[in-house]
Write a protein that binds this DNA or RNA. Structure first.
Length: 281
DNA sequence: AGTGTCGCCTGAATGC
DNA sequence: TGCATTCAGGCGACAC
């Protein structure tokens, strides 16, 4: 389930093969993923040099020299495989499109659940497109911090955990890192979002930044090896303090799971939340 | 505008 | 063993 760190790692893995390189062909194996893929996208990208590859929230954006570009979202199960020039490979189950670079590199999108999507972008206005209009601040950007987060949460009555999943509050945070950041900040996921102010907003903003940065660092260390495997980019081993650790001991305090403490699971908005009742208040 | 619910989709895990 | 059910979840459509 790629969130900001996983998407960042995927983008970093793709960049050396795409940035400054020319796309020979975008080959679609099916006309749609979650949404239809624009019919003119292959023609718009063919023969174009990729000027830049960037990430915004959980999206990857590629911009070409002719002013056109693409937007890629990995959904829940989207993966990218990259084959350097000259390396043979076979099409695999759930491969949905292939980008052939002029130098012979192949970049393949695989997505069992097809919750991901590929869309067209305009280089000079992609930020105003429907995917990005209304998207909240980049948590790893310079402007992000306690005051920005507090403003985004002001007046919201929904639980802070649910609010963090709202991409208009902060971009790129998903279920895993929302849980981890709240744990790190010592804030209960059940608290009303609008109540998180001042010192707590600053602590939460700092926790979001640190948990995302550490995850990127952990993934970055695995990047150097990906060319030697057939594993998709972006799914790396990372240690979580609370996520998917129901019933296990809390790593932040000595609450005893044998006496009803430890990590508990709740459901908010239909999604699992993991937290420590002792440490997160 | 904020909030809550549903559906998309398949594989893994679980239940009988 | 095998078949059926449940669960996972980002996002957009939709209702209120």
């Amino acid at each position: 389930m790629p969130e900001l760190p996983e998407v960042e790692i995927v983008k970093r893995g793709m960049a050396p093969f795409m940035e400054g390189q020319v796309i020979s062909e975008l080959r679609l194996y099916r006309p749609d993923l979650r949404f239809p893929i624009p019919k003119d996208l292959p023609a718009a990208l063919a023969g174009q040099r990729v000027q830049s590859l960037l990430r915004r929230g959980k999206y990857i954006v590629g911009l070409a020299g002719n002013g056109r570009g693409f937007v890629l979202h990995l959904g829940m199960s989207g993966r990218i495989r990259i084959y350097p020039p000259g390396r043979a490979h076979a099409r695999e189950k759930h491969d949905h499109f292939l980008i052939v670079m002029q130098d012979g590199a192949h970049i393949i999108y695989n997505d069992a659940r097809r919750f991901g999507f590929l869309d067209a972008a305009e280089a000079d206005s992609w930020g105003e497109s429907r995917h990005f209009k209304g998207m909240g601040p980049e948590p790893l950007g310079n402007e992000f911090g306690g005051p920005v987060l507090e403003r985004a949460l002001a007046g919201r009555k929904s639980a802070i955990k649910t609010a963090l999943l709202d991409q208009s509050v902060v971009a790129g945070v998903g279920n895993i890192y929302a849980c981890e950041a709240l744990f790190r900040a010592g804030i209960s996921p059940l608290r009303p979002a609008g109540d998180i102010r001042g010192r707590e907003a600053s602590a939460l903003a700092a926790a979001i930044v640190s948990v995302l940065r550490e995850a990127i660092d952990a993934g970055g260390s695995s990047l150097k090896d990906y060319r030697h495997t057939d594993d998709g980019l972006g799914y790396f081993q990372h240690h979580f303090a609370v996520y998917d650790r129901e019933g296990l001991a809390c790593p932040g305090c000595n609450c005893d799971s044998a006496r009803g403490g430890g990590i508990v699971r709740a459901v908010q908005g239909g999604r699992s939340t993991f937290y420590c009742k002792s440490r997160q208040v």
